[in-house]
Design a protein around this nucleic acid. Sequence first.
DNA 1: CCAGTATCGCACTGATCACTGCGTTTCAGA
DNA 2: TCTGAAACGCAGTGATCAGTGCGATACTGG
Lengths: 190, 190
Amino acid sequence: MSTPASLPSRTGSRPGGRSARIRAAVHRAVGELLAEQGGEPLTIPVVAAHAGVHATTVYRRWGSVGELFTDVATSRFSGDIVVPDTGSLRGDLERYASDLARDLTDPDTLPLVRATIGAAGEQGASACTAERQQQLRAMLERDQARGHHTPTVEHATDALLAPLYYRAVFTDQPLTPDWTRTLVTHLLPD
Amino acid sequence: MSTPASLPSRTGSRPGGRSARIRAAVHRAVGELLAEQGGEPLTIPVVAAHAGVHATTVYRRWGSVGELFTDVATSRFSGDIVVPDTGSLRGDLERYASDLARDLTDPDTLPLVRATIGAAGEQGASACTAERQQQLRAMLERDQARGHHTPTVEHATDALLAPLYYRAVFTDQPLTPDWTRTLVTHLLPD
DNA sequence: CCAGTATCGCACTGATCACTGCGTTTCAGA
DNA sequence: TCTGAAACGCAGTGATCAGTGCGATACTGG
């Protein structure tokens, strides 16, 4: 675990270069392998072979499965959900909770979250939720700027993010739209 | 942690036999190794060596790290928290949430939860929360039997279990007593 | 006390993994 | 176009892992 290995190259490269293509292939391989066989622990040679890339490359760019999963999770969970702007906090939260629920229900998502948590601990867990926390904060602050009485980020996290992630990760119950709406209703009773 | 009380069992007894002793040693080894080195993934030979047991034994009894972790989590999270009986639902829940928060804050607990989720997927996650769900249900049903207007198990799970586990697993924020009391207050506003 | 059985330790084997030089290819900027 | 630097492919090494017979040991019920 030496190189954090963020984006390809120091000066940056074009989105069609070889480095970016390899990165995408490895990311896709992680997702696919995690989705199909969630039992056995994934190793770097297996991922590399499935991506059509040499294991050496993966070792050098990511170093360990934990850092690889963290990188995959970070890019997988960034930019995939847009903060809605419906005009009301309730509308924003209902829409956002629904989007997040659909995202977590994706068959590829859940294994990635679990594997990242297991392989990268707190850092991996943070990679799965950091952007959500920020997006939730953005919606709340925008509502507060309108002069409304807005719940705290802490309370909204407990009432929305926590149930969504808990139900997805720890249970086998479905994340239905009715249920997500109920979560928002409990947070905003008026 | 379920520690066998001091019992001068000589020979041919259930809780002091060789099989049980090995099981306890392996369980303790998993906990210790998970607590100290959370980075690298744990393997069966490493666990066996640290437990003073041959790897063959671990392979034969558990088969894989996933099943081993699930077994450790199941026994670790069973019987460690007693359902309180304070006379009121609020008192029960406050006490229970506080106990659960203290349990999740234990330095040995969190790595075990994360590793179990990562290595055993849904089955592992269930091993970490199954008993909690049952205990919560017991408190709610007891209150309902008193003729009170009681929140549903689903709602209580979203409002209590979910925030506790989410904060512990996904964030680095502390699970303070004040915060756990707030969770109960939001669930029972009256 | 004595069989019968289950469990464990031991010594292996094949397979896989993590990791490393070295030559080649690709890319960015002059 | 050219040049230096970064990234990649390749081959190979030592270490570790998963899994398997076989003999030895500890538990079970009679």
